[in-house]
């Protein structure tokens, strides 16, 4: 259940090499090296302020929106360095979807939320949009709950439904990778459970990187786990190994609850 088996045979999606990141003069990420592989769930854990959120936001360059951020090092996405000048940010972000900590649907209808991506990228055909909406909502396990009220405001949904709507919204542009930044931290246990089940289904078709503050969640859903501490990647290996026989003393301290 935990591992997908023989992960090394899969292709490498992300290859992070010597990544450093500064907020002004504060270094938030120090010499990160890690590989994210196809159709796996990679969990990123660590105490708050360890840089795990910053790291995942670097993978689709959302950190670029913060003016004081500087980076060095390379992140290869399917062999292309995403910091390369020839890489179009918009294009990168259409192949790498992102789900945020707090559900953030737009103040529009459920339907408009799902087809937002396809629409801004030039798909106008109503029939096509409807097909995309149905498919994405089905993939996000939300279709049955909302199919009769697609044109209601998205803010009428519960928190868990809103988060699944945000996942559907990301799926609508058919990305290869889904980045999730603590997607269940604002949700109750039942809603969290549904999202976790959904992640388990989605990993058949997508590569997923998920930041989580819950070690149990990481243990339940991920194939690989990366442990961050104070901007450094302390340990990265199979989830099973991390949670049974960690190599680093600090990893052990963290997962046994001695700090953080």
């Amino acid at each position: 259940m935990l591992t997908n088996g023989g992960s090394s045979q899969n292709g490498v999606v992300y290859d992070v090499k010597g990544l450093n990141l500064w907020y002004g003069n504060d270094q938030a990420l120090k010499d990160i090296n890690l590989k994210i592989e196809e159709n796996e769930v990679t969990a990123i854990i660590g105490p708050s302020g360890c840089g795990k959120s910053t790291f995942i936001k670097t993978l689709n360059r959302m950190v670029d929106n913060i003016p004081i951020v500087r980076t060095s090092g390379k992140i290869f996405y399917h062999g292309v360095n995403i910091f390369d000048k020839t890489v179009k940010l918009e294009e990168l972000r259409t192949t790498v979807g992102m789900v945020f900590q707090k559900p953030n649907p737009f103040p529009k209808s459920i339907f408009e939320n799902v087809v937002y991506g396809p629409k801004i990228h030039g798909i106008r055909n109503k029939k096509q949009l409807m097909e995309i909406a149905e498919e994405s909502l089905k993939s996000a396990a939300l279709w049955d709950e909302v199919k009769d009220r697609l044109h209601d405001n998205a803010y009428g949904l519960s928190g868990g439904q809103q988060q699944r709507l945000c996942i559907a919204r990301s799926l609508a542009i058919q990305p290869d990778v889904l980045l999730m930044d603590e997607p269940t931290s604002a949700l109750d246990p039942i809603a969290t459970n549904r999202i976790e089940e959904l992640i388990d289904e989605l990993k058949n078709n997508y590569t997923i990187a998920i930041v989580t503050h819950s070690m149990q969640q990481a243990a339940r859903i991920s194939d690989k786990t990366a442990f961050f501490l104070m901007g450094e990647l302390i340990e990265f290996s199979d989830t099973k190994k991390i949670f049974t026989t960690p190599e680093d003393k600090r990893t052990e301290d963290y997962i046994t609850g001695r700090f953080g």
Binding site: N65, L89, R93, T94, F100, P105, F106, I120, S170, I173
Partner: peptide, 11 residues
């Protein structure tokens, strides 16, 4: 977070 939602979709 609304802006982030749009940027993350490649807007």
């Amino acid at each position: 977070f609304l802006r982030d939602g749009a940027y993350a979709m490649g807007a």
